[in-house]
Amino acid sequence: MGTIDLRAAADENSVPDISSQVHQLPCCIRFDGPSQVSHYFKPTSSEVEIDGVRTEEAHFRGRKLQGATISLPSGYSGFVLGQASNRNANGKRKASSPEEEKPCWEAKAKFDRMTYWNHDTLPSKDDTFLRSFHWFSIAEALHKPVKAEDFVAVSHGEKDKM
């Protein structure tokens, strides 16, 4: 299993904040690398507001995209991960055999806002992307340490039912 190293991101200035530049498109661009995004991709704010969020409009490869910029829920951050430089504290390359080498990822950039885009449909609360955030509160409930009082509350509840 690989590891993710977020230590760099914890420091305010060590990784760039790219909050206004993260877009999720409803397509797969089979390319990985830098591109002149701001010269070609020019979102404009539309007049429509849905659930208190102003919708935006953009075009990509001839298709009309409708999107919304959302803040990540508090307590959560977005990271762009890249292969870690694979160097130890002395700056020397770790000597490791290929089978021992585990992929190691580190934060290259961070964001707390992002824009997601739908092809031809206005953004709404029903979008899968926004709905996936529901997991956060469930995860929180699932992983919250159980305290003694919680046991008491549950066992009392059981008795009441009986």
Binding site: P26, C27, C28, I29, R30, F31, H59, F60, R61, G62, R63, H119, D120
Partner: peptide
């Protein structure tokens, strides 16, 4: 954006470029 992407000519021109797959 001056170009009409929906024209067959465009598809031909972009064949050698980065492939984009749409959900729709």
């Amino acid at each position: 954006s001056l170009v009409r992407f929906s024209w067959g000519t465009c598809t031909t021109h972009l064949k050698s470029e980065v492939e984009v797959a749409w959900e729709s």
